[in-house]
Amino acid sequence: MATAPYNYSYIFKYIIIVMADCPHTIGVEFGTRIIEVSGQKIKLQIWDTAGQERFRAVTRSYYRGAAGALMVYDITRRSTYNHLSSWLTDARNLTNPNTVIILIGNKADLEAQRDVTYEEAKQFAEENGLLFLEASAKTGENVEDAFLEAAKKIYQNIQDGSLDLNAAESGVQHKPSAPQGGRLTSEPQPQREGCGC
């Protein structure tokens, strides 16, 4: 245990759904990063997947136990925006009521090709009770903010007690443990020594 490269107070599980007609990934990417909210180090376990209709059924299993869901559309392609509502339904039905859902308009750097206005998406987000921001994965603008915004909100939910850490699927772990790569089921995995770093 002493060699495990972790020290942080919480682990938040995030699922990122990138609305796409031509996907950047077929499957689920898995990654981690550490951020700081209110002086607390938080380890994010990020499941990143393409919101392709044909994989919708399989993707459903990844929502389970997510503390945050990031729904990403492309501001230059309305089709990706139009897909949102059905995926949002999944996100709502398959996560717990406290899961923080954040809507992200990607490619904010391509203003000239904009196909979805900020106001329209903002309104959609408000109507559906989502956090919203536009970002650019290319320039990096606001991407960090998206992670942070969601984490802040989750942390706030923990602080005011509305997110019960003892609930089975809160998506938040308080004590570091072995990272569980994209396991579909919630069976515990044997811990392996952290070999990194």
Binding site: I26, V28, F30, V58, G181, G182
Partner: peptide
Amino acid sequence: LHLERGKDYF
């Protein structure tokens, strides 16, 4: 296809 501690491929 699941990689332990890693990503999943569809």
